[in-house]
């Protein structure tokens, strides 16, 4: 019996060694994960849920709820090739549900990236069509989180709920839900880095994104709460979807040493 346990212990130790060796090998040829932090702003000021803001046209709006999916991240290398952030079919890894009311959801990591120099980042605001139609999911993609249309099944890519005195809907509600459907894929965003970002085994970076909600109203399309108080299907929300992809900009990128990444700084 004792001999058997020794054998089991030895096997466990061997497995650990292999695992550690594997990690070491990976780190040697690859770099660190990239951290992304998102701040919701209106112009230059932080968004406050419940506060009133004004559009260029003079419409007044406030936000009570802001949630959306970001997925399918990839980074462009200086040589034009791409690093595609891995996503697995049996978990929600790589699918991030950002919620203004949940601070933890606004900071996440992608990668680890291979060491190298990167010039830009691309992602979807929403969920790709394949995963959207892949059946019951878990984690951030758990439909029980409520970011899911049950009347025409699929994820709600982007959800903005608030109020506007100009809204013609009951209680001046403003309800914009963007979702997928035939011919309504998730919108893609590409952001060029102002200067190349270096990722190595010792140094990573934090990408600080600003999502400017003013651009939800004054974006590629000018949206008025009076004429569009609700958008609850793929056709009606097409313009909101376009604008949701225009919210994002890189505020700044800063170097993040390995120790800082590990400590969550």
């Amino acid at each position: 019996m004792k001999r058997k346990m020794n054998l089991a212990a030895r096997r466990l130790a061997a497995a650990w060694l292999l695992l550690l060796a594997g990690c070491g090998h990976g780190a040697a040829q690859g770099g660190l994960p990239l951290r992304i932090e998102i701040s919701h702003v209106v112009g230059d000021a932080p968004l406050q849920l419940g506060d009133s803001y004004k559009t260029a046209a003079g419409d007044v709006w406030s936000a009570e709820r802001l949630r959306y999916y970001l997925s399918n991240f990839r980074l462009r290398r200086a040589d034009g090739s791409w690093f595609v952030n891995p996503q697995s079919a049996d978990s929600s890894r790589g699918y991030f549900l950002v919620d203004e009311a949940d601070a933890a959801s606004k900071q996440f990591q992608i990668g680890p990236l291979p060491a190298g120099t990167y010039s830009g980042i691309e992602f979807l605001v929403g969920v790709d069509a394949t995963r959207n139609g892949a059946g019951a999911q878990t984690g951030t993609l758990d439909p029980a989180r409520g970011m899911f249309w049950t009347w025409n099944t699929g994820y709600i890519f982007f959800q903005f709920e608030g109020h506007s005195p100009q809204s013609s809907d009951a209680e001046h509600a403003l309800t914009w839900h963007v979702g997928g459907g035939t011919g309504a894929p998730a919108r893609s965003v590409f952001l060029q880095f102002q200067s190349p970002v270096e990722i190595s085994a010792e140094n990573s970076a934090e990408l600080h994104l600003h999502a400017d909600l003013a651009r939800l109203f004054d974006g590629a399309h000018v949206l008025h709460p009076a004429t569009q108080p609700t958008a609850m299907d793929a056709a009606a929300s097409a313009e909101v979807a376009d604008n949701s992809a225009g919210l994002f900009r890189i505020d700044h990128v800063h170097k993040l040493p390995k120790a800082g990444l590990a400590a969550g700084l």
Binding site: G135, T150, W151
Partner: peptide, 16 residues
């Protein structure tokens, strides 16, 4: 044809 996957079917009546 509002439900696009057999696994998601029960979600519609459950939440209707």
């Amino acid at each position: 044809g509002s439900v696009h996957h057999l696994e998601m079917q029960p979600v519609a009546p459950m939440s209707n």
